[in-house]
Computed example of a mutant assay.
Amino acid sequence: MAEVMKTFRSPSRHGYAVEISPFFATRLACATSQYYGIAGCGTLFVLEQSEVGISLLRSFDWNDGLFDVTWSENNEHVLVTGAGDGSLQIWDTANPQGPLQVLKEHTQEVYSVDWSQTRVETLVVSGSWDHTAKVWDPERARCLCSLRGHEGVIYSTVWSPHIPGCFASASGDGTLRVWDVKAGTSRLIVPAHKAEILSCDWCKYDQNVIVTGAVDCSLRVWDLRNMRQPVSELLGHSYAIRRVKFSPFKMTVLASCSYDFTVRFWDYSKDLPLLGTLEHHTEFVCGVDFNLHVPNQVVDCAWDETVKIYTPPCLAALKHSTP
């Protein structure tokens, strides 16, 4: 039997991104903006889930909208957000006074932040409307390099979970790029969609597989060893796909959320890849994440001022086994 859906309401704050802690199964963070991110301030909500619901653990305000959030991989109290004023904020849940550091080198909105996962390094990557991706050392609070190449807004930057110093970016120029930080250049450029790409994510079990989601309403799964055509194209959304995320428990399963108010679950290895569709929001769904600790538990956030935690029936029916 599927668990009961839990809901947290963030009055006058519209959800842009949500992520569950890599340390605690019950802790999550949501980056939000006032006035749909067009104007006003932003709030970072740090939340705790229990068997009966979701409670507020801590909230942090910033003077511009917050568009993305990432947890530290080596300190359970630390998070990083990206803001509309071009800055990144480093927060400590044990320190309610404000950000530990503010990193400001981007000249336009920071739309994506991600903390490296390989444990070999401690790095944050950010993507911005200024067409650059920047790699930061959060412990020394400085930018290590600025990477240029995209000809449009960078909407998504995600570290490889397998290869140190390697991240992917998705852009309004319709390309997916894979970057080598040491070389300071993109080693792969994939013309992935004939539309703006708003999100990308790496497969957790295969270092060569990436998924992209775009304004053309399609998801495309790519094998970086042969990029002439996608491994799979997933169709079903009726508006732009805002975020995509691979399951940490099953190699070919992924989630997508969209401006069509839905969250969809897919298994790209199947002839009929759409596993299920949930329409439990009344506005754009902008953030989605899988719980690393609880198989098939999902969290999402939307412009309807809610965060929801649940186990989709279509995933609950799957075996939990990993490849």
Rank of each mutant, 00 (worst) to 15 (best):
M1C: 01
M1W: 05
K6S: 08
R9W: 01
S12I: 00
S21A: 03
T26K: 14
L28G: 00
A29K: 10
A29N: 06
A29V: 13
S33F: 00
Y36Q: 09
A39L: 11
G40Y: 05
G42Y: 04
S50L: 03
I54G: 04
D61E: 14
D61G: 11
D61I: 01
D68G: 10
D68Q: 09
V69R: 03
N74P: 01
V78G: 02
G82T: 09
Q97P: 04
L103V: 04
K104V: 06
E105R: 14
H106N: 07
E109Q: 10
D114K: 05
T118A: 04
D130W: 08
T132H: 13
E139D: 11
A141W: 00
C145A: 14
S146G: 07
G149F: 13
G149V: 06
Y155V: 07
I163D: 12
G165D: 02
C166V: 15
D173Q: 03
E196A: 14
L198V: 00
S199Y: 08
D201P: 05
Q207M: 13
V209G: 08
V215F: 03
V215Y: 12
W222Q: 07
W222I: 07
N226F: 13
Q229I: 03
E233T: 15
L234A: 09
R242M: 15
F246P: 09
F249Q: 12
Y259R: 11
F261S: 01
F261D: 13
V263E: 13
D271G: 03
T282W: 00
V288Y: 06
D289Q: 11
F290L: 05
N296R: 07
Q297N: 08
V298Q: 01
A302H: 10
A302W: 05
D304L: 03
D304S: 06
E305D: 14
E305A: 10
Y310M: 13
C314G: 10
H320R: 11
S321L: 13
